[in-house]
């Protein structure tokens, strides 16, 4: 890696840290400012970067865009009315943009952050699409199944010890109504990830649980277990 790109990536790393701190403080605008600066910084260096550096920058850009999607989603879920819809829509747009980059990364950079969250975002924006009776359900189902295959492949490859991969698999299986979601959660537990991983998974599953049928027992059970693992309940 060239020194200049190393410097850019370091600056991006610190901006992402700053955004997370702001997010924890509920400072949504501050968090988005940091991420916006990071995105601009990466985009400004992409064109002139050597191929290997460009790959690293694209991976960082995908991650930063995913973080933008995450901020909008958390902010949207705390908002109401048209603002909620607007923010959730922005969230999906950011995840989609991140996915375009993420999908073209080499296997060494295998991630599913945007892949999964763009689908979660669609479900939150339009919870009816999770209902099998809904005409849009089929389209979502196909995308969820494709995503599950991608994540499963990644887990059998370079992501066998990546807690996020099992979070994503668990999420996808829940959205697909697959009881094997609990197996994915058990696999995640075996990796003994830091508590923030469970907190993050919880922040994804809880809104889904709120949006779907109250009788989705597996989802409710998993939400409860993840909350306990995150240290939020006994």
């Amino acid at each position: 890696m060239s020194d200049a790109i190393g410097d850019v990536l370091d600056e991006v790393l610190t901006l992402k840290a700053s955004a997370k701190s702001a997010r924890l403080d509920g400072d949504w605008q501050g968090a988005l400012e940091d991420l916006d600066t990071a995105v601009s910084l990466i985009q400004g260096h992409l064109a002139d970067a050597a191929p290997l550096d460009a790959e690293k920058l694209r991976a960082e850009l995908a991650d930063a865009l995913g973080s933008v999607g995450g901020i909008y989603r958390r902010w949207g879920l705390l908002s109401g009315g048209s603002k909620r819809k607007d923010l959730l829509s922005r969230s999906v747009t950011a995840y989609d943009a991140g996915y375009q980059l993420e999908a073209n990364l080499h296997m060494g950079g295998a991630v599913s952050y945007n892949l999964v969250n763009r689908l979660v975002g669609r479900a939150l924006l339009d919870p009816d699409s999770l209902n099998p009776e809904d005409p849009r359900h089929e389209e979502l189902l196909v995308e969820l199944q494709q995503a599950e295959r991608v994540v499963t492949d990644q887990i059998s490859g370079p992501r066998q010890r990546d807690p996020w991969a099992f979070c994503d698999l668990c999420t996808l299986k829940l959205l697909l109504g697959d009881d094997e979601a609990i197996t994915a959660l058990h696999a995640l537990k075996r990796l003994r990830p830091p508590s923030f991983v469970y907190s993050s998974l919880l922040s994804t599953l809880e809104p889904i649980a709120s949006a779907v049928d109250d009788h989705h027992l597996l989802l409710a059970r998993i939400v409860s277990e993840v909350a306990a693992l995150a240290g939020l309940t006994d």
Binding site: T14, A17, S18, K20, S21, L24
Partner: peptide, 14 residues
């Protein structure tokens, strides 16, 4: 220091 500040703040954020 600005960079370090962000990283330290995050490291002790919780």
């Amino acid at each position: 220091l600005l960079r370090m500040g962000r990283l330290v703040q995050h490291a002790i954020s919780e």
